[in-house]
Write a protein that binds this DNA or RNA. Structure first.
Lengths: 145, 145
DNA sequence: AGTGAAAGATCCTTCTT
DNA sequence: AAGAAGGATCTTTCACT
């Protein structure tokens, strides 16, 4: 899937996506042309999906994070899904097996705001809200092996 | 918090963190020096936490994603937390309020692998597993306003 | 696949307004 | 915050292993 060189490239770019090909090449012990080619192929193979930035929610005023499980009432599934997608504070939502149909992550600035948002779907779904107290594992890469 | 120019910078960099200051400047209609200064300040203010890459789990063979709620047995909280953190397939784990103490997201290559992993904590915690069927909302930024 | 050198292009930052 | 310019830096191409 990924050989050892690819892995090192991915790890280095995960830490700093702005480093030049030259720096990257030195970091992984390869020449610039080879490194450049590797990166290009990782993109072509769809392994590197994008070069992006990591934002700090707290620095944007989002001091509260919640994980909400949502079980739409009978016949309301599609409406609820659309409602959730339309809430900009929902930064991610998965449709899952089991009783809880959706699991959404929300960034909010206060409990009041959270309450407001949940009220919008209260008549169309049962919700179960968990407030995030800490993050024992922050977003990280899975094994690249 | 963020003025309109900052917002456009963040949006542009979210889409492509590799663009040059020059390109970025053109995209947002500002001069290069000003743009450069803005980006630097966004980093200093802790809003841009890092420049990184977005990996495609499927392209790495992770065809299955699961969200596992974990309720440690009495006295096992710390052990369980450590156990979870030590599972490399756990790409993110939150400690939350409520009965379920932890909510973890796992990337796995098969149901068998998921089963193996869950077995490791089966004697120390109750778990509730939901398989991700689709992602109505893929990872996105919260409102930048 | 990878290396090394070189040339050309591009870029960032500084300074002045 | 803009504009120009200098000086550095980089990426890619090419021949070769």
């Amino acid at each position: 899937m990924l050989d050892d060189v690819d892995r090192r490239i991915v790890e280095a770019l995960s830490l700093d996506a702005r480093i030049s090909v030259k720096e990257l090449a030195q970091a992984i012990g390869l020449s610039s042309p080879s490194t450049s080619e590797r990166v290009k192929r990782l993109e072509e193979r769809g392994i590197i999906r994008a070069f992006t930035i990591d934002l700090a929610p707290e620095a944007l005023g989002y001091t509260l994070q919640a994980i909400v499980r949502v079980r739409p009432l009978p016949g309301k599934l599609h409406i609820v899904q659309q409602l959730i997608a339309d809430i900009p504070e929902v930064v991610e939502c998965d449709k899952v097996t089991g009783d809880d149909c959706f699991i959404a992550r929300l960034y909010v600035r206060s409990i009041g705001q959270l309450d407001d948002i949940l009220d919008r779907i209260a008549d169309k779904a049962e919700t179960n809200t968990a407030i995030v107290k800490s993050q024992p594992v922050k977003r990280r890469n899975p094994p690249l092996g």
